[in-house]
Computed example of a mutant assay.
Amino acid sequence: MIELFVSALITFFVIIDPPGNAPIFASLTTGATPRQRRVMAIRAIVISSIILVFFALLGEELLGSLHISLDAFRIAGGLMLFAIAFEMVFEKRTQRREDRAQKIIDTPEIEDVSAFPMAMPMIAGPGTIAAVMLLQARSEGLEESLVVLAALGVILLLTLAALLAAGPLMRLLGQRIEAVITRLLGVVLAALATQFVIDGLVGAFGITLPGTA
């Protein structure tokens, strides 16, 4: 249980990236009052939580209705997460998020950024949805499923704390430290994504690989 919790915790932390979302949120809410920032931060977490819990609980049934096997989803999800990891290592993900944020800033009529882009796709994006479904698919029984959801809850609370403390957190970390952390987490995510692909290949084709027997 502890290993599953730690694995899920690391996976969600790497993909959601609470410290990385903080400066984006700070830039999107420039000019807003402290109360407005708090409301948007809480609303973003609530919306993203609903989306992720929905896919965690009903994602497998949704795949079944579309005649998509879990092994196929493991492979596809692993490849998707690997693409995110590649972008993190080479800082392309950060640049894309900043470009998206700048477009929102340049559009004055958009004031509430809690649903878009904060809740989705920055927090509950395709990578996070894929990860929560993959981890739930690997869980056996109610207890392990609850462990995965608990890890997700911890990271979402950490993300909320990061959004609420976006200004001071940004000054504390600085851009250089954030870049180093992002690259290191990208390497970890690449390894986790590769494991998802291996699990999918083993399940789909009955391939026996070293360490999987």
Rank of each mutant, 00 (worst) to 15 (best):
S49A: 15
A76V: 09
V147Y: 04
A22Y: 01
A44C: 02
A165Q: 15
V6K: 12
M88D: 11
V39G: 04
R176W: 05
S7C: 02
T182D: 12
L185K: 02
L135P: 06
A162H: 03
T128R: 08
L81V: 06
R74Q: 13
M118K: 01
I207F: 09
G125K: 02
A137H: 06
V147W: 04
E98F: 05
L156R: 00
A137K: 01
V188I: 15
G211H: 09
V180M: 13
S65C: 07
T29W: 00
H67D: 15
A213K: 14
R74L: 10
V6R: 10
A22E: 03
I155L: 03
V132F: 03
G174E: 15
A76H: 00
R138N: 15
L152K: 01
V132A: 05
F90K: 09
T29C: 05
A193G: 09
I75H: 03
R43S: 13
G153C: 03
L9S: 10
V14Y: 05
M88S: 11
T212H: 14
S65R: 10
F5A: 10
L57F: 10
V132G: 05
L70G: 15
T128Y: 03
K103I: 05
S114C: 07
E144Y: 00
P18W: 01
L169C: 06
V53N: 10
D99A: 13
V132K: 01
A83P: 02
S65G: 15
I10R: 11
V6T: 15
L201T: 06
A150C: 13
P19Y: 04
T29H: 05
G200N: 07
